[in-house]
Design a protein around this nucleic acid. Sequence first.
DNA 1: CTGTTAGCGCTTTCAA
DNA 2: TTGAAAGCGCTAACAG
Lengths: 342, 342
Amino acid sequence: MPKNRRVTIADVAARVGMTNITVSRALNRPEMVKAETRSKIEAAASELGYVPNAFARGLKHSESRLIGFVTASVDNPFYAEMIKAVSRHAKQHNYAILLFDTDGEAWLEANAIETLLSYQAAGIILSPISDEPDYRPDYIDRLHNSDVAVVQLDRTLYNADFSSVVLDNVWAGQCVAAHLLNRVFAETRVSAEAPARLLIAAGPEQSIISRERLAGVQTTLAETDRGVAVDVLWGDYTLEPARDDVGAYIETYGMPGAIFGMNQLITLGALQAMKAHGIAPDTLSVISIDRLPYLDIFDIRVPCVVHDGFHAGQRALELLLERIADPELPQQTITVRGELIE
Amino acid sequence: MPKNRRVTIADVAARVGMTNITVSRALNRPEMVKAETRSKIEAAASELGYVPNAFARGLKHSESRLIGFVTASVDNPFYAEMIKAVSRHAKQHNYAILLFDTDGEAWLEANAIETLLSYQAAGIILSPISDEPDYRPDYIDRLHNSDVAVVQLDRTLYNADFSSVVLDNVWAGQCVAAHLLNRVFAETRVSAEAPARLLIAAGPEQSIISRERLAGVQTTLAETDRGVAVDVLWGDYTLEPARDDVGAYIETYGMPGAIFGMNQLITLGALQAMKAHGIAPDTLSVISIDRLPYLDIFDIRVPCVVHDGFHAGQRALELLLERIADPELPQQTITVRGELIE
DNA sequence: CTGTTAGCGCTTTCAA
DNA sequence: TTGAAAGCGCTAACAG
């Protein structure tokens, strides 16, 4: 069977002996058409297998029902959760999602934005590859000059004036420190000679997120007279460097009083290093940001500050829809607080 | 600052004192245009911030550079991996991904297909909500009558004639059984009175995937004279029913000789049930399909048959591109084998 | 090498 | 309630 030529509004019109415009109206503004004509048209349309051409429609209105989601890692479970939330709420408002995985590459991110502009995307949810001050991609101006709504999610471009939904990183750091002071460093007293040591396995040194989390820890520690010394290992949010650096640290300085991993992968890396050095997870206090899934099944307790990705994604989409509806709205930042789970 | 009207090819043309078509050519077929004109045009285009309108182009060619990915669960890590693969390879061929999360709902799946047809998607990678024989959505005919390329991934519609990339489920079952015979039931001898028991926590009873995995186990067991009795608990591929049913089983029949969980979540459910009954993971042999991530860090060994989702996704996209290039190609099925990891 | 014309499928005037 | 004409932005086909 040769594939039928695509059926258009005109084919439907011909079938019922009317003109294009009547068919168009019957399908989009049913109230403007006599009920009888309408049902004839609807019948013909479904019989012929008519599918509206989104391109023609988009060209006409010069607006589209597309929302872009740009992220560095679809396979990060936290992002997967956010994508799910965005996708679910987008389709309730009749938007479809164009997904771009930038794989941490600046040029792919730039391409993604370019493509979204060419599809006249109504909005973009952007989680850029980096929040460091020296990452200032050219597309920022393009976005400001166009009329796409933009909401940054989780990560934000340094100093770019877009709305955003971010985690309360300072607070997460404070939570972590408070928990450690309560549970681990409870007996610690000021002691300049042999202070208790907290090892922090962080993300990149220039990452705002890492710095905020660190700042949170430090302010809370500073509020007490417990003499906790903080050692920071900068990394890149992935497992391997965390594992290697924590391993090296343990070899050089011995076991710290506690380890704080700034995200899931970092913490797993730290745990791996501990295992390699024969340290059981319950001997040394480990605390994390992001949940380490399913460990409770095996009675391994790593307390963590958990952020609700689904909620964050949903808020981002809400913000985006508001901006699409009213582009003149001032930029907003929404902060999502995590919760300490023991 | 009022947002500038969108800049079109005509604006660029006016700027350099040429006509639309020359600009169009300079941008798309550089070789057809004098080098000097071309560079003038390119300069003007980037200065004005020209972005081609994908809708106009799509309308003209009546073909698009869009590929649809339709799945029931973006947040399943196995799917996330496949999405990553598809996305990465799609962009190498200049396709963008329209992502639809159907959340297991038939009407959302139907909507997704409808939307993809309206966007003239060049191809669709489809992982339907169900592979059971009584799920026969209407869109199957629409797809066959249109000229979209379709490749099913992981799950396939019962008896729909589309290409597909599927896991070798029979083989996975055989692997599992062979491993159990070697390691767990090695000493078991024929014994009608007290046969060794293998508990299988499966997906839905009508699911082809579950039935194939089960069949694999049974053929391998049948090839030996070891008297292993198989008990099957049907479920739905999620954690909770598996946990509850395995728990109930243990209470009624006591500990089986081994438990086989047919996917990650089922196995985790089984492990949870064991924990609730005070059975340590190393006392009872558990085996799974799909990896249980990071357990090795804690010295918990659950052998599993692992499938390479990245590879599967990549193959699906390759198949799709082939069909886009030549729609007359016969339908193909590619089978991806997993590997037993101890 | 560059320009004219026409049309992709749909919808927005304006008119009947 | 329905229709005619025009145009969204882009690119074939055919000139020049």
